[in-house]
Design a protein around this nucleic acid. Structure first.
Lengths: 119, 119
DNA sequence: CTATTATATAGATAGTTGTCGATACATCAA
DNA sequence: TTGATGTATCGACAACTATCTATATAATAG
């Protein structure tokens, strides 16, 4: 078969394609994206950021056309990913964004974007 | 039951919690995150960005411990989400990042982050 | 044309996830 | 204590997904 025309000098010297990201980073970023891979959770995080400080779960349940257990589930997913935290006061639970995790997500995008070669 | 202590003046005037994001934006961002909600796809996008221009699929298949159809599947998911594009030259397929979509993802994070109140 | 190679698609399967109703747990009022 | 309310958990089910093998499609070499 023909010599590949666009055959890249991959890595500059060899034919082996190096994976740029370390396993742990891949794990972290995939987990963060996974937590935001659902429309309800994207909107939930946006609400928490918009009304940060804290938002009571009962308000969230009222704002979404979903059952209370489902909202609780989505909040749990966001919390497991570290994107939000919560504290309980009396019988109420208040969720709020974890800006550090959100920042990690932005750094991921920026690291990817840093590879772009602009004209 | 007791008056809620942390009861927020949500929205400033009423008890209804407004959803900050429009349906279409939520859809877009969830779809982008969904495409990156998998370790293999995160690494794939990183590789494509690192070696942009273009990367031949056969190199990708060689670099990952997964079957060729599985790599093809993941590239298809990234392509459906608009994060990458591809062109065929002869029998080879070359994938490359779509920086515009990656930028949309960064704008999402930034819009979320813009709500943060710094001390 | 035939054989070979690169890639995509199809089909199957095990595992995951979003959703709900039912229920348990915790907190507070009375 | 009893009842009411806010929240989390459980169990179930349908839908989706990551992966594989097998196969189809496309392009090129001989």
């Amino acid at each position: 078969m023909a010599q590949k025309p666009g055959s890249l000098p991959i890595g500059g010297c060899c034919d082996t394609l190096a994976l740029p990201l370390e396993e742990q980073d891949v794990e972290t970023w995939a987990a963060l994206c996974h937590a935001l891979a659902d429309k309800t959770r994207v909107q939930l995080l946006a609400v928490l950021c918009r009304y940060a400080g804290e938002v009571c779960v009962c308000h969230l349940v009222a704002a979404f056309p979903l059952s209370q257990p489902t909202i609780s589930h989505h909040l749990g997913v966001l919390k497991s990913a570290g994107l939000v935290r919560c504290k309980k006061r009396g019988p109420w639970a208040y969720y709020y964004p974890n800006w550090e995790a959100i920042n990690r997500l932005r750094q991921f995008i920026e690291r990817i974007q840093a590879q772009e070669v602009r004209p």
